[in-house]
Amino acid sequence: MTSQTALSGSAADRPNLRRRLAAAGWDRITLLVLPAAAFVVLLFIYPFAYGLVLSFQPAAGGLFANYAKFFSDPYLYDTIGTTMWLGLPATLINMALALPIAFQVRHFRWQRILTTILVIPITLGTVLVAEGLLTYLGPQGWLNRTLIELGVIGSPVRLIHNYWGVFLSLVITGFPFVFLLTLSYVTGIDPALPQAAATLGAGPASRFRHIFLPLLVPGLAVAFCLAFVQAFSVFPSAVLLGAPAGPTRVISIAAYQAAFEQYDHSMASAIAMIMGAVQLVVVVAVLGARTLFYRGPMGSGKG
């Protein structure tokens, strides 16, 4: 800066404001963050704060009346357990399926084609998958008819309008997401690491336990959180494929009913807040456990 070289003495020793800001990580490029920040404030923080405030303004009763009502009515608070009972197993099964498949696909020659096929369900949307499953899993669907033809079962198995319909749809729509994340973590591990472990005497099981697993856990935890949050907010398939009045009355249905059947937006907000809090508790617990593991570069030294 020419103006600065002209300055003399103590004034020149002190860097100007622009330099000091740059040293703290602020320069003109930082301004590019502003549109995104505005977007977050307008579409996330403001509605969230609005909902939070709204939830403390019940139609009747004191500040916490909505929350008190939720936790005193089993018809309401049971939805947490119901949703958990769908979301947790579906997420865990997806992870259990994705991990070995990712390990295989890693070496697969047509990795891209297989990945595309596995990922197609993500592009379909939950409603289309639910419609498809209704036909496929229904009493007159292909699955039941095939099983009856083969003599495996005598009468159709009930797989829709109950727990299993929703569960299967969660697995199908959630899998591609978990799989893609897992695949990227698995392929991120330097293949020389398991090879080195092998030359040191580690068999396949030991290599998985001592090399792959510790390096994968942090990534898998993130994948779990994202998939779980998605599964926990299940709505269309719980209505279309499940028994929304009973076994698959998930928490989002309760919120929907409060908002659009009872027109109690304050209560609906309170349920949404509870839903968010439950998700947050699970995510914080999982990510907290993640800090117990190594979270550095997955490579080995200077590649």
Partner: peptide
């Protein structure tokens, strides 16, 4: 794992964790 030869890899392949 059953040959028992030691190997030093070009990129060292140290276990980062």
């Amino acid at each position: 794992e059953r040959r028992g030869f030691g190997m030093v890899f070009q990129n060292y392949a140290l276990f980062p964790h």
